[in-house]
Design a protein around this nucleic acid. Structure first.
Lengths: 348, 348
DNA sequence: CTTTAGCACTCCGGGGAAGAGAGTGCTAAA
DNA sequence: TTTAGCACTCTCTTCCCCGGAGTGCTAAAG
């Protein structure tokens, strides 16, 4: 059977109406929306065809029609009109990102909340380094004879520091030598390689210095490890409760638990600037009845992040997609301006 | 009317039964729970008295009885048996806190999640400095001629660091002098005072150094400011959805929004080691139908934190109180061992 | 005076039954 | 091919009835 232009129009009307009402759409309504050029009976014939072709579903005989995942897919790919954000709204989005730049973590959390607030669905956000992070520069600052501060700059320009408590008294005069050793032997290599090299220099270094050295390396390996991991922040999960499909507390609880716990399983496409996953297109069990829209943004040249929105399959794809790319663009621009990771900040 | 011992026993039974079933408690049930020593008719007389005295309420004629806030209060103050945690459970609590110590932030989030998971109610947690935090020691590390890292140790031993981009080229030879200046003039004073002093030294310092100095001071003021603020972390809000009183999505949404947004308004008693606030005893509008249990813990000598649990007035006070003090004790001990804030860690 | 048994009464909640409403599918005509 | 008409289906709401749980009261017993 052929998918005529009129069928496509009808499908579009059904999807858009259902997105807003969450109620099955009847032939009368559709006829009305189409300007009265055709009667409801004609629409009914077309609807029967669309059901047969798998684009629509019928909750039961004598109910209106509801889009199937396949129907949403067609809508998203071909029927949906790309919304353009009003200048006003773009302004608001950028404003919501215009915070005093603090740590990346905080900024992400803030952005996640903002996205969720804008689109009225739960959101998640993450940043991941594009290449392997290594140590670029070390320094040790003496505090007193039992403590010193280790400062490490990483290859992506982020800085981390830590107060170290020394088990053995160390002659403060020797610290500069240790710093030189660190910078010459332990930069630009992986954590594993660091530990390797630590073993190699074991005999060349006085014991009490070696102890401190290994503390520093342990800290560095930790910090690099953490820096390489993607941490995912979620926000606005409670927005689900406002949706009719999650009025059932159990369903809502299920999806919220998924969002809170199984963060690794959230869709994380690597390539496309924006990706939409509808219902069963998701791999996660918990997302079979949900849709996800994800967009990527750049953090300087070395890092990349993703912002995603989770909602019912009956999601307002056009609106979400437009706002999401607005946010992605806003974030990219934000990080461009600052060049590389913005303010680097120590944190207890 | 007098509150006889038998009335107190009956009240206790009603509260404990209602806590577990969420159903109004009838006279038959109570008679059963009390060992059959009295008949249900007698209980009914007593119940009528307890209603009159305001300790119990009746949803409607011919329903069982439900505790009033006043009833819960009496229960908590006088009737409730302080639960002792099993060794096994104490073990589990401590284990859940036995994470690789990272930043305080992460630890708090972790602890919050653990508390919520243990008691099955939403939890919130915060840490606040007991006294004013000031800068204790500064250092500047040159990176290249356009960048340097500022490291600041604060009076509570926390360390923060930040990469600074210098607008003007600075002769690296001059950095040590600047560090000396920072340590002599800008330590142990408030952010306001810092800015004050910055003005005072303006003329004694070469212009390009002054620019860097003011960047450092601005960063320090920011960091100190942030360190003084209490950040509140909430966790496990979705646990609400499992409770019969929040099966209504709107009610749940309301309280969850409160938890997410109005963090400043969560109960934060300053003195007691543990405080229980029942329904209308809460000042916040949103907590009128909820109860809160808060406990405090120590972070070394200078800081103090609070962990709280939010639930329905029908909360299992004994269980929550026991677990909460378990957590508070665990946290206090954790920080004692480490002396002062644990690992200090830089974070982008 | 307190406790208890007995009993009528109240109220909630579940389970049809009935009816309204929305929407379909089919037929026959335009 | 489109449309009007119409019978039919299914859901959702409302109403009512009834069973069950629990009370309050009364009168008798301890």
């Amino acid at each position: 059977m052929e998918l005529t232009e009129r069928k496509r129009q009808i499908l579009k009307v059904v999807v858009e109406d259902y997105i807003h009402t969450a109620e099955p759409v009847g032939s009368r309504t559709i006829a009305g929306r189409m300007g009265g050029s055709v009667s409801s009976a004609t629409i009914r014939n077309e609807l029967a065809d669309l059901v047969e072709m798998g684009y629509l579903e019928q909750p039961h005989t004598s109910a209106g029609r509801v889009p199937s995942p396949k129907g949403y897919r067609l809508y998203v790919n071909e029927l949906m009109e790309r919304q353009k954000l009003s200048i006003d709204e773009t302004e608001k989005i950028n404003q919501s990102l215009h915070v005093k730049m603090e740590e990346l973590d905080h900024l992400l959390a803030q952005a996640g909340r903002a996205v969720s607030a804008f689109v009225k669905y739960p959101a998640y956000i993450t940043a991941a380094s594009r290449r392997h992070v290594t140590a670029k520069r070390f320094d040790l600052l003496p505090v007193d004879e039992h403590k010193c501060i280790v400062v490490m700059m990483m290859s992506d320009s982020r800085v981390r520091s830590q107060l170290l408590r020394m088990q053995l008294k160390v002659d403060l005069e020797q610290l500069p030598a240790l710093v030189t050793l660190l910078n010459s032997h332990f930069t630009a290599v992986s954590a594993d390689e660091m530990n390797q090299r630590l073993m190699n220099v074991a005999e060349q270094v006085p014991p009490q210095l070696f102890l401190l050295l290994s503390q520093v390396i342990a800290y560095a390996a930790d910090a690099l490890d953490e820096a390489g991991q993607r941490e995912i922040v979620t926000a606005g999960a409670r927005a689900l409760l406002k949706l009719p499909e999650f009025r059932d507390a159990d369903k809502a609880h299920q999806l919220m638990s998924f969002l809170a716990d199984s963060k690794e399983k959230l869709p994380m496409p690597e390539e496309e600037p924006m990706k939409i996953l509808i219902g069963p297109e998701n791999v996660s069990e918990a997302l079979q009845d949900a849709s996800v829209v994800v967009a990527s943004y750049d953090i300087g040249d070395d890092m990349r992040g993703l912002i995603g929105v989770v909602g019912p399959t009956r999601m307002d794809y056009a609106a979400v997609a437009a706002r999401l790319s607005g946010f992605a663009a806003g974030l990219t621009r934000l990080f461009e301006k600052q060049e590389l990771p913005p303010k680097e900040e120590g944190k207890e």
